[in-house]
Design a protein around this nucleic acid. Sequence first.
DNA 1: CTATCGATGCGCACACCGTACGCAGTGCGG
DNA 2: CCGCACTGCGTACGGTGTGCGCATCGATAG
Lengths: 242, 242
Amino acid sequence: MAAKTNPIPSVWARRRREPEQPALSREAIVREAIAMLDADGVEALSMRKLGARLNAGATSLYRHVATKDELIELAVDEVFGEIPVPDPGASDWRADVTSTCEAFRDTTLRHRWLGSVIGQAGLVYLGPNLITVSERMAALFSAAGFPEPARAIDTTLSYVLGMGTTEAAFLTTVMRSGQTEAEFIARLMPSAQEAVAGHTFLSDAFADAAANAVNDPAVLRQEKFAYGLNVILDGLALRLPR
Amino acid sequence: MAAKTNPIPSVWARRRREPEQPALSREAIVREAIAMLDADGVEALSMRKLGARLNAGATSLYRHVATKDELIELAVDEVFGEIPVPDPGASDWRADVTSTCEAFRDTTLRHRWLGSVIGQAGLVYLGPNLITVSERMAALFSAAGFPEPARAIDTTLSYVLGMGTTEAAFLTTVMRSGQTEAEFIARLMPSAQEAVAGHTFLSDAFADAAANAVNDPAVLRQEKFAYGLNVILDGLALRLPR
DNA sequence: CTATCGATGCGCACACCGTACGCAGTGCGG
DNA sequence: CCGCACTGCGTACGGTGTGCGCATCGATAG
């Protein structure tokens, strides 16, 4: 009933096929979605904007992806593919597990939306890349002699996820403030000091932190992560047979 | 220009003050928001629905809360108030830390939106309740003799947060399916089996899990949590002086 | 060569969202 | 008694995810 966009269909109005254009594909959509998530966070990803970036309408995406949530699930598993897990080698199992956990942490910091999104979707529907990471970590722990590698995996990955999520959320806040991490911390100091006043133990910890404030904050975070990881690996080592 | 709702202001149309009605207050708003979050998750909380539950218009809430994000921050700190931390006592420090971590886990499971929300907001802006929990945990570790209680806190809480978030996300998925946890797992088995086929180590772990499937899943989750926590406490114990 | 068919892209529409703004009542200090 | 600060709310704006039906395409069957 309503007037169409092209009341008189004309040869000239017909779009031509552009074989150069990679066309819409699930891979391209997921790739571009990750780029948007990395750039502006999870609340900045909308199907309309994503479509626009791909020279497509918003609803065209639904031919390749059932729903926005499914798209995010795909993005999550995609970035898990960035985590390399070494083969169980002649070298120390601790070194191999450590490098894996650090790669995992790097991924949560490179894609700072990961933490919040996993909290919503969970690691329930295991994508192929997460399965691969798990399998290879299981191989690592098994070769080291652990009778229950799944337990070791759950413990280490929970820690890495929790710490990584917290770090990522912090870095997001820093970035939103438009300052460097050091600036942000310096500017936060007074109010933190005030919040902690009257709490004796936290004040002590705060004083220690202030003394360390001359160091690179990224290095301090890395050290904090390594400390906890070593605690866990020590605890696991006690459970090795013999 | 447009006709007003009440073109002729009348005495009879005037609302009367209802002193029984608790009126809108920040506390009431936060309390009701938590109730909605607990009931239907984070994406079901809208200012309009929250207003309706409080017999108020959506925008009335903004007199007491600057923004929806701020409201969520308040809700987060509010539920942290549910975590009791014992005084450092004569008893084992491990028992005290364990009870604290289990209370934290209980909170993440009782309020399953916590994990995803912390991933977005982070623990950056420390509310009073989180500060209290931290202070009391610091007291626990200090009394136990740890020279750097902050490190111990970061390690344990990262683990608890990561594991709790994962569990909560899983339980949310289960609940959405409308099945019990045991039913959900049973129904998931075939596709999980398939996903794991060809991965030798995961297949082993899967077989173990299947053998345990007769037990209460909630108990199995609790045991998994306790295992990792004990690993961490063992690792920390190694760092006690002497 | 033509008719048909499945796959793909897209405009429109719906219901809903957070929240800025300005008006309308209320209770209180002067 | 006036005026003012505070609270609630109706309206409106610019977004959101996505269901629906149509237009167009390449491949294949007759």
